[in-house]
Write a protein that binds this DNA or RNA. Structure first.
Length: 586
RNA sequence: GGUCCGGUAGUUCAGUUGGUUAGAAUAUCGCCCUGUCACGGCGAGGGUCGCGAGUUCGAGUCUCGUCCGGACCGCCA
């Protein structure tokens, strides 16, 4: 037996016991005649002590030879400390070493294995196995473990059944780019890795598994971000014989359960709901961060036709009110203007109006708007003395999206986006389709199996872009945690949908024939939803980046810098797969 | 496909207008230290300044290219 206890579990109740622990050397504090070593394992840190004259010289010599991250087994007696350390759970005791066994030496690690490491991102990723020894990273993975465990517990209690679906499936044209896998046994043919188990879970509904879930990897070959990985995990769910309301209630329950059990955070109210149209109008986003106000205000009525051409020519003049920000200096305001003019935001400029404490207004367009006109702005924008109104104008979609960025930026700048505050929001009634300029056709906004709202059926033929879907997202703190829809379970409607998306009958049959065939054998009404598991856990942990919640993540070029993948294949391997590679075009 | 930021000691960073032998902190190593826990004291070693061209009497510093990392836009049903 390597150990009788873990490093983290010893307390004053163990005083007097002879114990054996094993772990990594965290730090060595050598005072000459007395030496302390902090030993670390997954469970915590415990201090080892060796005092000259009290333990053998051999033990002292052995301890002096240790270095950071050496793996050591130490036997000794648990004793009370002369000087206790209230910072440590084990701070009341220490182990008087009587036997030291070096299990493995270690090179000097390239960065310090401490909560506040000196290592940069790149280095920590290259030596991820060392980074994973650090408490902050371990805590994140522990949270992930707990969330997945509680997900399974909760879904089990409400009769969901976990069913695995295949990873080697078939490429489909809709949606993201597929990762493909060549088939050796079928030369020239390829599997695709699933972007999600969408069709399989619908087939399971046809099979009568009326409550399915799976915590499952999905793969999308698109460019990455801090909150996006090429392989990511979903809590994928589907239910039969349900309406939208049933799905929302079930999974609102799941989220509440997870926050309660994993974060000790109780949502006492129902999650607020908002239509997509309303979210776009009030926040310019389909995943608004409602931890703070600063809602959009339509200023058309008070800002147009006053001789200021920029506003007069605009489809929409939008303002937001930043509480207590009237003391922003010219320098700060210029910085904001430059911020919105960055190519990523793309605004041509920004107008502001300060609501001064003395009741006057100071705007960047005083030439066109007198005090009375600016007072009108303030009234419409519900701005009070001391507030700052920021105004953008332009085409509706553009200005909304720019104002969304500005609002989030101001929220961050004003410290209104507390990661320990959680503001969930159901966003409902997403459009069924969105027009794609590039391919000059409609794309499914959610996916091609999403059912249109009954009351919008008539629009399918007359104005497809206006059709709303039985589709919903759960947003939290400005992050899309998940989404889903009530599916089409009728073969004829599904056929019409494929038609709208520009599939010929043959293409639809080739790509999705199996699903349409299945629908001819008694498909129940069904719908579901999928949560982005990595994002959910990161949000629960109060982080914007999902990478620390994944044990071995990839960088923003899709590379794993630790194992150095992807990498070329040997020619023999290519030949066996009937593959050749093209030269990279410069 | 595009935009922005970064790359200097093991690590995190500083490095002035282009000018002497490129610094600090930390880590490492050595010596001292009996109550430390960010231990302390004294000392030492440690640099292809990402790489390649160019400008210049002279480049860590300026220019171009390239590689790597990060953030973002497009993209991601």
């Amino acid at each position: 037996m390597y150990r009788s206890h873990t490093c983290g579990e010893l307390r004053s109740s163990h005083i007097g016991e002879t114990v054996k622990i094993a772990g990594w050397v965290q730090t060595i504090r050598d005072k000459g005649n007395i030496i302390w070593i902090d030993m670390r394992d997954r469970y915590g840190i415990v201090q080892i002590v060796a005092e000259k004259g009290v333990v053998t010289d051999e033990v002292i010599a052995q301890l002096k030879d240790l270095g950071r991250e050496f793996v050591v087994q130490i036997a000794g007696e648990v004793i009370e400390r002369y000087q206790k350390n209230p910072e440590l759970p084990t701070g009341d005791i220490e182990i008087k070493a009587t036997e030291v066994v070096l299990l493995n030496a270690s090179l000097v690690p390239p960065f310090t294995i401490e909560d506040q490491t000196d290592g940069g991102e790149e280095l920590r990723m290259k030596y991820r196995y060392l980074d994973l020894r650090r408490n902050p990273v371990q805590d994140k993975l522990k949270l992930r473990h707990k969330v997945s465990l509680e997900t399974r517990k909760y879904l089990d209690t409400v009769d969901f059944m976990e069913v695995e679906t295949p990873y080697l499936i078939k490429s489909t044209p809709e949606g993201a780019r597929d990762f493909v896998v060549p088939s050796r046994m079928n030369p020239g043919q390829f599997y695709a890795l699933p972007q999600s188990p969408q069709t399989f879970k619908q087939l399971l509904m046809v099979s009568g598994y009326d409550r399915y879930y799976q915590i499952v990897k999905c793969f999308r070959d698109e460019d990455l971000r801090a909150d996006r990985q090429p392989e990511f995990t979903q809590i994928d769910c589907e239910m039969a014989f349900v309406e939208q309301e049933d799905v929302l209630n079930t999974f609102e329950g799941l989220i509440k359960h997870l926050f309660k059990t994993c974060r000790n955070h109780e949502f006492t109210e129902d999650f607020p709901r908002m239509t997509y149209a309303e979210a776009m109008e009030r926040y310019g986003s389909d995943k608004p961060d409602i931890r703070f106000g600063m809602e959009f205000v339509n200023l058309n009525a008070v800002a147009q036709n006053k001789g200021f051409g920029v506003f007069d020519d605009a489809e929409l003049v939008l303002g937001i009110t930043v509480k207590g920000a009237a003391e922003y200096t010219r320098k700060q305001l210029d910085a904001l203007i430059n911020w919105v003019k960055r190519p990523q935001i793309g605004a041509k400029g920004m107008i502001y109006s300060k609501c001064n404490e003395d009741g006057t207004f100071k705007s960047s367009v005083d030439k066109f708007f007198d005090q009375a006109a600016l007072a009108e702005w303030a009234k419409v924008a519900q701005a009070e003395k001391g507030d700052l109104i920021l105004v953008l104008s332009g085409d509706t979609d553009t200005v909304r999206s720019q104002m969304n960025e500005l609002r989030l930026h101001m929220g961050t700048e004003q410290g209104l986006r507390d990661p320990n505050v959680f503001a969930p929001l159901w966003v409902l009634d997403f459009p069924l389709l969105e027009w794609d300029e590039e391919s000059q056709r409609y794309h499914a906004m959610h996916h091609p199996f999403t059912s249109p709202k009954k009351e919008d059926f008539d629009l399918i033929d007359t104005d497809p872009g206006k059709v709303r879907a039985n589709a919903y997202d759960l947003a939290m703190n400005g992050v899309e945690l998940g989404g889903g829809s009530i599916r089409i379970h009728d073969k004829k409607l599904q056929g019409r949908m494929f038609e709208l998306l520009g599939f010929t009958d043959e293409e639809a049959k080739e790509q999705f024939g199996f699903l349409m065939n299945a629908f001819e054998y008694g498909a129940p009404p069904h719908g579901g939803l999928a949560f982005g598991f990595d994002r959910l856990v990161a949000t629960m942990g109060g982080s914007d980046s999902i990478r620390d919640y994944i044990a071995f993540p990839k960088n923003n070029n899709g590379r794993d810098v630790m194992i150095n993948s992807p990498s070329p294949l040997a020619n023999e391997q290519l030949t066996e797969l009937y593959l050749d590679t093209l030269p990279v075009e410069k």
